[in-house]
């Protein structure tokens, strides 16, 4: 699997995901600076976490209109797998590649903690390494992770199996206690209609090394390698 990581001014988990991809694939991803003219031919494009362009307007709003994102969108239309994590998720929603928006956390505070995540479907190239219903422990670290869409959209996402992950407790049960940011229906990650684009707020790249805590993020990277190699 060949992969690329888009680096914006202000990206700050670009190196974290580089390490996780290198570990999972055995080779370094190509790091693509936001002004680079060309995006290499790859199997997976990752839009990493951080504060692209400072996020002073609305998280991801400026990055969504950058030239490199136009190229990412074009690749996504051709079916290339695109993964947006945290700020990357915000950027992909702002760019219209994923439904919904990410609002400021309900309690208005930044939150960094390990949360429970339930895998809503294993039927995707991103989640093939997990079982449907499996409960993961993966950290979040964001100020604007409160997923919102209107009820019709949310119903449609559920009908079409486009919900990838939901926040849950240790027993896999949803509830406001398990919801770190006020997200609608505890949604932590969503797919596009073809399930070739995934955006999620939690950081699987920070859950791949037992020394640092959870290794529950490894399934995502292993599943992608399996599906895309």
């Amino acid at each position: 699997m060949k992969s690329a990581v888009i680096v914006f001014p202000g990206s700050n988990r670009d190196n974290d995901v580089r390490l996780a991809l290198a570990d999972a694939t055995g080779r370094d991803p190509t790091m693509v600076w936001h002004r680079d003219a060309t995006l290499p031919e790859v199997d997976l494009i990752v839009v990493p976490g951080g504060f692209s362009y400072g996020d002073y307007l609305r998280c991801g709003a400026i990055a969504a209109h950058s030239p490199v994102l136009r190229e990412v969108a074009e690749r996504a239309r051709r079916g290339v797998a695109v993964l947006g994590i945290c700020n990357g998720f915000q950027i992909l929603t702002e760019a219209g590649l994923l439904p919904g928006v990410l609002l400021r956390n309900a309690n208005l505070k930044f939150v960094c903690r390990e949360v429970g995540l339930r895998v809503e479907t294993s039927q995707s190239l991103f989640t093939a390494g997990y079982a449907t219903g499996q409960v993961l422990r993966i950290p979040v670290a964001h100020h604007d992770g409160n997923y919102f869409a209107d009820d019709d959209t949310l119903d449609r996402l559920e009908e079409r199996g486009q919900i990838a992950f939901r926040y849950c407790n240790a027993d896999g049960v949803f509830g406001s206690e398990a919801n770190p940011n006020g997200s609608a229906r505890n949604i932590a990650g969503v797919f596009n209609e073809t399930k070739t684009v995934l955006g999620l707020m939690p950081h699987p790249e920070n859950a791949v090394d037992g020394l640092l805590g959870s290794t529950d993020g490894r399934g995502l990277f292993a599943g992608m390698v399996e599906a895309l190699s």
Partner: peptide, 27 residues
């Protein structure tokens, strides 16, 4: 307090806040 701080970015935090000392791995 410390949940408002990103204490995990850089993927090297071996001992998180709340212990006697924090520990970060040298990558």
């Amino acid at each position: 307090i410390w949940e408002q701080y990103d204490h995990l970015v850089m993927a090297n935090t071996v001992q998180r806040p709340g212990g006697d000392a924090a520990v970060v791995r040298i990558e």
